[in-house]
Amino acid sequence: MDVAVYKLRTPISEEDVRRLQLGDVIYISGIMVTARDSAHRRAMEILRAGGSLPVDLRGGVLYHCGPVVKKVGEEWRVVAAGPTTSIRMEPFEAEFIKLTGVRVIVGKGGMGADTTRACKEYGAVYTVFTGGCGALAANAIKHVQRVEWLDLGVPEALWVFEVEEFGPLVVTIDAHGNNFHERISAEAERRKTQVYEMLGLK
C-alpha cells in the first residue's frame, strides 16, 4: 500500500476527502466534535424533526469518543480521549453524515455498509485512531472550546475540542465505497478453514 500523509484543517472540503485512499494517513487541526451512543440518538431526533445541532458540523470532524475530563476552575481539561468502538453508531451514521455534512469521522474498529455508502454518496471518510491511546490523543487536544448536552453524562456529551495535528489517523473507509475493515474480515473469513484445520476441526 502506497501511504500518503495529509495535514487537514477544518472546515474540510469535499475535494480534500475525495482524494484520500485506503491506508492514507491524515492529521487534523482545528475543531473536532465528540458524539457517541446517546448523543447520536439525540442528534437524530433533532435532525429528523428539522432542527439543528448546537454545533455546525458542515466540513467538520466527528469523533467517536467519551473523554476523561477534569474541571480546573471554569475550564475543562482533557485527561484522556482515545476513540470508542464505532460500530455501535452504525445504525445512525449514514443519516448523520447526510444531515450534518460531516467530512471526517474518527473512531476505531471500523464501520459497516451503510456508512460506507453514505461516505461515497456525500463525500466523507472514516478514519481510525489507535484504540486505547487516550493519553496520546489528549496530547493533541489543545483546548476544550465548549461542551453541549452535558446532561447525557460526561462520556456522552458533545465535546468541542480545538486540536493541533491530531493523528496519525488511518483512512479505512474512503469516499469511493472502499472499506478496509471489510477486506480484513473477508481475509480472516477466507483463512477460517485453515485455522479450523490447525485445531483438528472440519
Partner: peptide, 21 residues
C-alpha cells in the same frame, strides 16, 4: 508503536492509559 508510546506517555504524566477507565 502508537500503543507503546501511549503507555510511555501515560506512565510519565500519570494519566489514564485509555479514556475508558
Amino acid at each position: 508503536e502508537a500503543i507503546l508510546e501511549n503507555v510511555r506517555v501515560a506512565e510519565e504524566k500519570q494519566l489514564p492509559i485509555c479514556q475508558d477507565t
